[in-house]
Write a protein that binds this DNA or RNA. Structure first.
Length: 255
DNA sequence: ATGGCTACTCCTAGTAGA
């Protein structure tokens, strides 16, 4: 069982790469973020030809999440149930192959102290509530996506430079920890201790070439799934392909 | 780097991302 997460930065712009990557990696499930298109524009047919069914929570131009799967999906929850239809499309929950799966695109937050920063922190508190109300930590639960927060110093290329800046501020890291305290394990850290492994690199200034990145895309699991996790890695190769997303896929394999 | 790229839009300039 192979489950992946990838911020594709526009599914329409990235479709050739996504198809190429699906053919190479053959994941059972791929959670995508920043699809940046409304559900009626989503390339369902192309993904169907590649062997995947899609569930969507899209939005024009901004945000947008999708789960594509070779197995069937049930009990879908789009966003926060109490929100109206015009809310930002940033989370999608579903049961797939006996796993309760939550795909998230956490807000960026723009800059520490800004209005968007407050929105980000509030959104993260609401994600924790969503988990409290809809998921059971003693069963198989997987939370993945673009968290837009680097958890620790070893997840940041220059912790001194990033100290208390957006994506690595104390309040964001505390909010991230509060979500983790629900009962999650970071699957990447089950297998790899050292720093220098990132999932996002700035398009500018040769960020990828110089490995100036952040590890902000994660696959977290409840205890029953942590026991089954055999491998988790970041598919850095994809970031060197032509016309890449600024994020690389993260992939977890389960027994 | 107070922004070096990329992708978006009632498209050729402004907004957003991270």
């Amino acid at each position: 069982m192979k489950i992946a997460t990838w911020n594709v930065n526009s599914i329409i712009a990235r479709l050739p790469l996504v198809i190429r990557w699906l053919e190479k990696e053959q994941p059972d499930v791929l959670c995508m973020q920043e699809t940046k298109c409304s559900d009626d524009k989503f390339p369902l047919l192309e993904l169907k030809s590649a062997g995947y069914d899609c569930i969507l929570f899209g939005q024009q131009s901004y945000n947008g999440v999708a789960i594509i799967s070779q197995a069937g999906c049930a009990n879908e929850i789009r966003g926060f149930p109490e929100d109206d239809a015009a809310s930002q499309a940033r989370s999608l929950m579903a049961d797939i192959a006996g796993i309760r799966l939550i795909n998230v695109y956490v807000p960026n937050g723009q800059s520490v102290g800004s209005e968007k920063y407050q929105f980000k922190l509030q959104w993260m508190r609401r994600l924790r509530q969503l988990l409290d109300q809809n998921c059971d930590p003693t069963s198989a639960v997987l939370l993945c996506g673009d968290f837009n927060v680097a958890p620790e110093e070893r997840d940041v290329h220059d912790p001194r430079l990033w100290q208390n800046r957006i994506l690595f501020s104390d309040a964001e890291r505390a909010a991230l920890q509060h979500i983790k305290d629900w009962g999650f394990t970071d699957t990447f850290r089950l297998h790899t201790e050292e720093g220098g492994h990132y999932s996002w690199w700035d398009y500018r200034a040769g960020g990828f070439r110089r490995n100036l990145g952040l590890r902000i895309d994660h696959i977290w699991v409840s205890a029953p799934l942590a026991k089954r996790n055999r491998k988790t890695w970041i598919d850095k190769e994809t970031r060197a392909w032509e016309r890449p997303s600024d994020h690389a896929p993260v992939v977890a394999e389960f027994e």
